[in-house]
Design a protein around this nucleic acid. Sequence first.
DNA 1: TATGAATGAGTATTCATTCAT
DNA 2: CATGAATGAATACTCATTCAT
Lengths: 196, 196, 196, 196
Amino acid sequence: MRKRPRQQRSRALVDSLIEATIRTIAEEGLEAATTVRIAERTGVSVGSLYQYFDRKEDLYQAAMESLVAELQAVVDAELANLTEVTVSGFARQLLEHVWLLLEANNGRYLNVVRYWAQLDGLQLIATLEQKALGALSLYLLHHPPQKPQKDLPVKAYIFVNSVMLTLVRYISDPPPNISRTQLIDGFVTLSEQLLV
Amino acid sequence: MRKRPRQQRSRALVDSLIEATIRTIAEEGLEAATTVRIAERTGVSVGSLYQYFDRKEDLYQAAMESLVAELQAVVDAELANLTEVTVSGFARQLLEHVWLLLEANNGRYLNVVRYWAQLDGLQLIATLEQKALGALSLYLLHHPPQKPQKDLPVKAYIFVNSVMLTLVRYISDPPPNISRTQLIDGFVTLSEQLLV
Amino acid sequence: MRKRPRQQRSRALVDSLIEATIRTIAEEGLEAATTVRIAERTGVSVGSLYQYFDRKEDLYQAAMESLVAELQAVVDAELANLTEVTVSGFARQLLEHVWLLLEANNGRYLNVVRYWAQLDGLQLIATLEQKALGALSLYLLHHPPQKPQKDLPVKAYIFVNSVMLTLVRYISDPPPNISRTQLIDGFVTLSEQLLV
Amino acid sequence: MRKRPRQQRSRALVDSLIEATIRTIAEEGLEAATTVRIAERTGVSVGSLYQYFDRKEDLYQAAMESLVAELQAVVDAELANLTEVTVSGFARQLLEHVWLLLEANNGRYLNVVRYWAQLDGLQLIATLEQKALGALSLYLLHHPPQKPQKDLPVKAYIFVNSVMLTLVRYISDPPPNISRTQLIDGFVTLSEQLLV
DNA sequence: TATGAATGAGTATTCATTCAT
DNA sequence: CATGAATGAATACTCATTCAT
């Protein structure tokens, strides 16, 4: 990023550009997300875009980061008022909310996640991994399992990645013989067995 | 594909083009995989490329199909000489071999798989899903579980996607605190619990 | 033309190529008339095409010449069994037949004539001019006009060009308020007045 | 057209591009009128060309329209200060001016007109037909013919097309035995007879 | 002689980036 | 600072022509 804008105006513009980037990728695809198009949707000129982002990639990167922050915030809020006592209930609630999030705003998040390979978005999932690991630790602290758990980081890694990536895949291309309910139930079962 | 190459020469060229496509994507990235570059690496002119593929996308598609076929062959071979009797052993062996495959040839497969979103490669995973579902059914037939299994398609879907996608992610970007052995163990555990 | 083919086989092939050229231009347009396409429609390879025509343009040229010859033959035949005694009748018959010719075989002639500018086809009309001039002279010899005609070449030039070019235009793009009959009547009137 | 150029600069550029298109077609032929060549002759880059014209065809179309407008203007001016009282004089004056126009600027108009088949330029002649029909009607109103005229549209159609197309042909490829004067005289005669 | 695969220059079009206004 | 016209390298794809088999 070329500048660290402190003024209101600048910060608002940067945010608008990032938002336009996300919406454009989500609604029109990565190929349509040209600098001119993004500037257009933001309501400014390309020149202004380049006032704040040296290269297109920086803008994409910023969009990714913004998305991660949003996802994090949602998950954080979710974890905060977590009242469930069973593992199943905990997992189910989490799954439902992540699902809703991915589907939200016309797949705003979903379509960006699909391009993570191009957008260097691995950090996105890495962040969520940390978050989930923390949540699991916290949960297990309050609800000690029958037998002591080991390899918690590995389990968290597997669980988070499996859920996230499979969810994205399912929403992107749902197979006809598997319903949303079945998938969630499947993952809930998985969570139970993983943490027995 | 523009022509149905029956002759030796043509078939060889088509294969070379597909191979060059895979290698180029793997080594230089999807963006570098231009028609001229691929032809160049194949050692022919662009014109020759277009003698066999109407559009660049068809070439990508063929590369994807080739990859699927290879993966399938490996998994098939694996299933053929399946001598293991425990679920764990079965899963472990499968995992090891898929892993080897994905890492093989400087991540030749891996890097292509990473672009599946752009390359309409969903079929790749869909095919493997079918294969895995068949293997699971076969396995359970010979080794009946304690209690009757239901939702086998759902479990297969979750298992295959979780393993495949998480594996790709792990190999692409391995976290320092999780070893390969740990990950495999984790998935083996998962397979046991999934099929109890 | 590269060769003067004396053998049956060669001559037949050259003719086939020319015919395929005309049909391709007529049915698929000038842009679609590529050497490969023409060879394909002829049922031979491009290589064979180049055995007889050094350049694509030579083939086009030959097609034009062939067309001219055909048109000439038709008009000649027409003039041969000309029995009409009035100028009007003579003109009307001629017009009707030329019209039929231009429309014949799915506009086979028409569509080629439309490209005369690109195909250096001016000679086509030049030839017909000569023919028509001859016919007029012949006609006037047998049916002497009231007053001696002068500027016969000019009148022939104007008449032939006007009729030919306007006819092509009319058939290519007929205006809704002018019927075929009206147009022919108009030209017949023109012929009468031109030769009084 | 991609943009509606309101500013001085833009409008001038669009005009330059159209002018370059006409000149290139006229001087180098339709095949040489590539986007790069046209941009080059305009003194701008290809990119600039595409800022104002979505496709090459749109540029050709604009060139055609520009030409039509110019021709119309000339004919209009001609009709405005029409002082002639005889049909012959009227026709002769019109012919002389159209001729001059077609020959003007190294055959700038002429060479473009020759490509009307490819350039969808039928509208060009259609417009002139309308103009001529109007002129004829106006003329006949002020100079009523001996006997009432019918089929005026047909006569106008024949006259305009015959004159225009034959003129283009004559200028493109003048036959040695017919002088310019003779041709004009021929058409003047034609006009007299057509409107008796 | 016939074939048709191979060539590669040529063409339209796009788009990230710059810079004069 | 903002603008958006201008740039031109890059890319997919075509097609006349050649030449090894």
